[in-house]
Design a protein around this nucleic acid. Sequence first.
DNA 1: GTACCATACGGAGGCAGGCTCCGATTCGCC
DNA 2: GGCGAATCGGAGCCTGCCTCCGTATGGTAC
Lengths: 204, 204
Amino acid sequence: MSETAGARPMRADARRNKERLLAEARVAFAARGTGASLEDIAGRCGLGIGTLYRHFPTRQALLEAVLFEQFSALAVSGRDLLHHRSAREALITWTRAFVSTTTTYRGLTATLTATLRDRTSELHASCEAMRDAGAGLLARAQRAGGIRPDIEATEFLTLISGIAWAHEQATSTDHPGQLDRLLGMVFDGLTPTGNGHSSPGKSS
Amino acid sequence: MSETAGARPMRADARRNKERLLAEARVAFAARGTGASLEDIAGRCGLGIGTLYRHFPTRQALLEAVLFEQFSALAVSGRDLLHHRSAREALITWTRAFVSTTTTYRGLTATLTATLRDRTSELHASCEAMRDAGAGLLARAQRAGGIRPDIEATEFLTLISGIAWAHEQATSTDHPGQLDRLLGMVFDGLTPTGNGHSSPGKSS
DNA sequence: GTACCATACGGAGGCAGGCTCCGATTCGCC
DNA sequence: GGCGAATCGGAGCCTGCCTCCGTATGGTAC
């Protein structure tokens, strides 16, 4: 993810600075959300804002660098969970990991959904890989009969992103077990077995 | 909602300008979200930014003025729906209206949840009235056995705010019937009758 | 009808943060 | 050690928020 292959390697000072910026960005995004001031990040490294922009031409690029491992990890864990004995449990486990990752940095949920729609973003590829991992788990759970067959991957991601967002808003303000309870209800709604009531009709 | 009772009435020019600002704000918030530039709104009225701030000392105050009727309408409709024959249907109907209102202006969902937590905000009262209307409908549906008894009003609002947010993000990008489908699934999850699966266990 | 002043207006200006551009500096190869 | 490419730094321009105060004007009292 650093230097373009084939090109001459980065100068030592540049490499050093890039690492420092990355480390500082991780801290700043966690503490102040994805909207943290970039000038502040550069300042904390003792570097000028120009240097930050040289290494990361956009906020998205910096975010991408910071989130790359986490999104990849989610993609990998998604593929691993494909071998879990219970397809439904696997999906639930992954979902919890998803929510937990996306709520690490305040504002990430919004960035994520925006990024999935913007194929020009530097973050797009990682997001997509992660989403596909989730889609695989969903499909398997549906084939196994653990999840209703009429929900689509994109829709599922939209739904759990909404939950993640809601959780992000309420963080620490409300009851601690809230996330588990919310996810529990959502998954109850995703269960294929009959329920006494019909879903709300088409809009009147 | 305008001039303080007892005080001398507003000067005619001031009243005129306030109306113009309000009208322009409605347009701007709808077009560019709740973060629309206030200088721009004033400019479109041919007024200085100082004039806008004189009438609406904060962005919240302006939003409050714009949203007051809509939130009140939601509160009123909530109270009316208390007499609907089906408690569950009433809640679903209200929820749909809630989502539809909060997605009128991009960013409103976020503003709303923030406002419910900030009792100093000018918008707080209207938000609370609306929330209480929803809570009443929820309680009734629970008593009637249409909704699981173990969800609490705040939690319910968090949940549907998440859906509203997700819908707001996806607006017009994704499939048109999506909102109904999402709400349908959520309400299936809120149904008290048995479901074959247990909710996800406590975090490992 | 005019004079007065409370009320209202306008926008300059200070602040913050994003991003660009280019002269100054430094690395590291020869 | 010297030179040129690579890198750095921050001034500067932009947008937007909000405050403050000198200027203008509506409307009332006479």
